[in-house]
Design a binder for these strands. Structure first.
Length: 485
RNA sequence: GGCCCCGUCGUCUAGCGGCCUAGGACUCUGGCUUCUCAAGCCAGCUACGAGGGUUCGAAUCCCUUCGGGGCUGCCA
């Protein structure tokens, strides 16, 4: 392509469900490449034959991209000079080009029915010939076409693949060549006038002046067909988009990540309290690396550093543990105000709080205690819920941990000494408890505090005890201890 | 089956002929710290799929082989 063209990259998902991890990794790299080169990031919806689900899909997809911080320069909601950006609204354009290919002799009408094709494919397979289209309708005469049409057959438009081969330079894989013997003539348009992916994608990329196509490697072998469309459109070789086929994101087994082998929906991660910056950071490192040992990458750093040539050619396994580790790190890096703001939706939707000022103040004080103990935002809920309500539910297995004599004596002593604490603060609580249970009774700290912890928080795992009691208040602390005596 | 892509610790990766007795991160194991759980700190385990070349020298180049994946649609 010409060196001085402005870079234009597109993310073009098809509306087959929620945006998933693989989609987003592609979107992230598309975005990063566009931003890195000061180019344009185009968002396009590949909905050639699914008009009905489009509206809500587009909204969800746009919402997800926005949430992640991947802003687009052209596309749904923002428009742009090369729209519309929904393929379902561009049907006339595809038809026009298909007709033109027909006129030019690049494409031809194919009257074969699905059943016929299938039968011939089977036969070809059995006799060890390649299973692609056999070219039956390639050189039909005018009278042949009339006869077939009179039979009531409605033709599709099929692209003619000339003899020879297609070679292109993939930014990630280097030079790739396909012999046309293995690239059979393909359908551009169904007999109802709807376009197929190969037609629509190529036409749109040319018309939208896309310069770089970064997409999944599953599309690698369809590239010669797309290039064939460019040729038929009269695009000069130097103006062809440049391809970069990204490796797959794999599940825990060795298959492409899907619902069956992992959590794929970005919405799922969002609902669990994964931070968008953590998802982006993790995904950026999946198949790409900045080259040094840095693991912490923000979106703006990614935009600055991203280079397609540093993308790995081999597939990468999605590792939840590492995502969690990064998410935990990002949470710990948040200020309390940020953490509060991001936690609130989880606390409200789980009904732990309604959102009053008093409740929020309690949360604000509790957050520093739990910030380093959570790996996702949704865990805030379980960590702070004991601070609300008069009583706490002590589960059976927790209760049995402290049903012995020593524990009961400890609780009793704790209650008595806490009753005497006049200024209810973390420091006075700690000195009271330590003085009584550790020094006087001679208990090990672990033995001494566990009963109190369980009685008051409901679990042997909790935020630091003295701070927790201070937040809870004297009345409820004593009430809960008494409940177990 | 055919075509195409891929192959470094369990996982993500660094590595582009000597700096590699292969580095980092996550995981895992052990330890320190400690009121629990975390966090933090320290230590440890573990990898160039195999076989041939080329070269003074190969994880790095070539070939073969094995393994994995994708495509082979009037899906995208």
């Amino acid at each position: 392509m010409s060196e001085n063209r402005q870079v234009r990259v597109r993310f073009a998902p098809s509306p087959t469900g929620d945006l998933h991890v693989g989609n987003i990794r592609t979107a992230l790299f598309d975005w990063a490449y566009a931003r890195h080169t000061a180019g344009k990031f185009v968002f396009r919806i590949e909905d050639t034959d699914r008009e009905r689900v489009t509206d809500q899909y587009i909204q969800a997809a746009a919402d997800t991209l926005r949430w992640l911080g991947l802003d687009w320069d052209e596309g749904p909601e923002v428009g742009g000079p090369h729209g519309p950006y929904l393929q379902s609204q561009r049907l006339a354009i595809y038809k026009e080009w298909a007709d033109r290919f027909l006129d030019q002799g690049d494409a031809y009408l194919c009257f074969c029915t699905n059943e016929e094709l299938e039968a011939r494919r089977e036969a070809a397979k059995e006799s060890n010939r390649p299973p692609g289209y056999d070219g039956a309708c390639r050189d039909l005469s005018e009278s042949d076409r009339k006869r077939l049409s009179d039979e009531g057959r409605k033709p599709v438009i099929r692209m003619r693949m000339p003899d020879g081969s297609t070679t292109f330079n993939d930014l990630i894989r280097g030079e790739v060549t396909f012999d046309h013997k293995f690239v059979p003539d393909f359908v551009l348009m169904r007999n109802d006038g709807s376009p197929l992916y190969t037609l629509a994608v190529a036409v749109d990329d040319v018309l939208m002046k896309i310069t770089h196509i970064l997409r999944g490697e599953d599309l690698l072998s369809s590239t010669p067909r797309q290039i064939r469309v460019y040729q038929a459109m009269g695009v000069k070789v130097e103006d062809y988009p440049i391809f970069a086929h990204l490796p797959f994101v794999m599940g825990t087994d060795n298959a492409k990540l899907s619902k069956r082998n992992g959590e794929v929906s970005i919405a799922w991660y969002r609902e669990r309290g994964f931070l968008p910056e953590a998802i982006c950071n993790y995904l950026a490192l999946l198949g790409w690396s900045p080259g040094d040992d840095r693991e912490n990458v923000t979106l703006s750093e990614l935009a600055e550093l991203f280079d397609v040539s540093r993308v790995n050619a081999s597939p990468a396994r999605f590792d939840m543990k590492k995502l969690e580790a990064i998410n935990g790190e990002k949470i710990r890096a948040l200020s309390i105000d940020e953490l509060l703001e991001r936690s609130l939706p989880f606390l409200k939707s789980s009904k732990v709080i309604t959102g009053t000022q008093d409740e929020i103040e309690v949360i604000r004080k509790a957050l520093p205690l739990i910030q380093e103990r959570i790996i996702t935002l949704s865990e805030v809920v379980g960590m702070v819920s004991f601070l609300f309500g008069e009583d706490v539910v002590v589960a059976e297995d927790e209760a049995t941990k402290i049903s012995d004599e020593v524990s009961r004596a400890t609780l009793k002593a704790a209650k008595e000494v806490l009753e005497l604490v006049s200024e209810w603060s973390e420091i006075s609580i700690e000195s009271a408890l330590r003085g009584e249970l550790i020094e006087k009774m001679g208990l090990k700290p672990r033995v001494a505090f566990t009963p109190v912890r369980i009685a008051v928080t409901g679990s042997h795992i909790s935020p630091p005890l003295f701070e927790s009691l201070a937040l809870l208040g004297k009345t409820r602390t004593l009430r809960r201890i008494s409940a177990l005596l």
